[in-house]
Design a protein around this nucleic acid. Structure first.
Lengths: 121, 121
DNA sequence: CATATAGGGGACAAAATTATCCCCGGAGGA
DNA sequence: TCCTCCGGGGATAATTTTGTCCCCTATATG
């Protein structure tokens, strides 16, 4: 893994949460797993704008922090299933709120983003 | 501002929220402002591990998305006060939850991070 | 043989974000 | 005069995160 050179402020609650949810696709992964989309290939289909590679990296970090568990079925073809741990479940209220907030405010945020690029003409 | 080369998925609620809260210090800034720490120099003292420079950048983005408002008092020495907009207020439940979650889970997360560096000996 | 599915990852490039350094105006105090 | 405080920002470097490309095992199917 990449070893940080700038230390994380371990005494800040927000920084702790950022360390867990900070990855670009981690919130999406957690939400997807929570609704039963829990196999690597399913997750990739669910988030096609990302790459297998990156999803695997982020899943590994979520696993390292014990937010999700990985069950490996030693079969051929291989089968893997992720599930939320109890600790991971405690993140769901936050994630659902973030998702809802984003949906509610989408039109507004969208308009600002779009005007930003228009201004470049 | 930096112009993104990889387009933002405008249809995903989580991505919208990430766009607002994604900056390293934005959640801290919003929480601080919400409790009355609302002048630039105060904010910098509150978050001394950051730089004025970066805080200004992130404040500007929060302002661009109308999460905060900036009042400039044309005095000498100059005086500036930030405040949450109504829209910005709607973020507070999320931020408070993130902060609480991080505080509750700090010991656990901390131990994982620290063991990570020990493993390099 | 070629392709598909299922899973995984190394090496490296590119993008995005933060940090560092130094400068500005103007007032006030030692 | 020199330093402090208040606010702000350009130029550039460093850090961190994501993405791209290619290769791997093994089975099944056209």
């Amino acid at each position: 893994m990449y070893e940080k050179k700038i230390p994380l402020p371990l005494e800040c609650g927000l920084a702790m949460t950022r360390e867990i949810l900070g990855g670009k696709w981690k919130p999406n992964l957690l939400l997807a797993i929570s609704v039963g989309i829990n196999r690597p290939s399913q997750l990739h289909r669910e988030i096609p704008t990302s790459t297998k590679r990156v999803l695997n990296l982020q899943l590994k970090e979520l696993e390292e922090f014990e937010m999700i568990e990985k069950k490996i079925y030693h079969q051929l073809p291989p089968k893997v299933e992720y599930s939320l741990t109890e600790r991971g479940e405690t993140l769901m209220p936050i994630l659902r709120q973030m998702n809802e907030w984003g949906d509610k405010n989408r039109p507004f945020i969208k308009s600002i983003i779009l005007n930003r690029t228009k201004a470049l003409d």
